[in-house]
Amino acid sequence: MEGQPDDPRITLIGRPGCHLCDEAREVVSEVAEELGVGWQEWSIDDDDALREQYWEEIPVTLVDGAPHDFWRVSPDRLRAALRRAPR
């Protein structure tokens, strides 16, 4: 979706109108561009299973499919996670 590679390493789970999601999107976009990795975004409004699992924690970031952060995204932690080899 947003990133370059076909297999995005970062997934941002949020919803429209969420100010923390907007902030997380900016951090994810900047770090992904800086490191040349792909990312995608999913909305809990479009998926009942995601809503049930994450509604109290959005925004949630996954790196290589594993939970990474929720509520706030630390650019430094995200960079460090992305510098490790994908699983």
Rank of each mutant, 00 (worst) to 15 (best):
L82T: 03
S29I: 00
R83V: 03
L20N: 04
A49F: 03
R79T: 15
A66P: 03
V63M: 12
E26A: 13
Q4C: 08
G38N: 02
V73T: 10
R84K: 14
D76A: 15
W39D: 01
D47Y: 07
L82M: 14
E26W: 12
G3I: 04
G17C: 07
V63N: 10
D64K: 14
E30G: 01
E57F: 10
T61G: 04
E26N: 09
I10C: 02
D64F: 13
P86F: 02
D64P: 13
A81M: 13
E23T: 06
G3M: 12
L50C: 13
E56H: 09
D6P: 08
A66V: 13
E41H: 08
E33Q: 14
E57C: 04
A81F: 11
R77V: 02
P5F: 10
P59Q: 09
R51D: 13
E34P: 03
W39A: 03
R79A: 04
A49R: 07
V73N: 06
A32F: 00
D46Q: 08
L62S: 09
I44G: 06
D47L: 09
Q40Y: 01
V27D: 01
A49N: 05
V37E: 03
Q53M: 12
Y54P: 08
I58N: 00
E57P: 01
L20I: 00
H19R: 04
Q53R: 15
R84H: 14
E52A: 15
D47G: 07
D48N: 14
Y54V: 03
P59N: 09
P59V: 07
Y54Q: 09
V28W: 00
R9H: 06
D47W: 05
I10T: 02
D47P: 10
E41P: 01
G14Y: 02
R77S: 15
E33D: 12
R84I: 11
G38I: 01
G36N: 05
S43E: 07
W55P: 01
E30A: 13
V73S: 08
A24M: 05
G36C: 05
R25W: 12
W39Q: 03
S43Q: 09
E41Y: 11
G14D: 02
V73I: 15
E33V: 06
R84G: 13
P16G: 04
E57L: 15
H19F: 03
P5D: 06
W55D: 12
D69N: 11
W55C: 08
E52T: 12
V37A: 01
V73Q: 10
G65V: 04
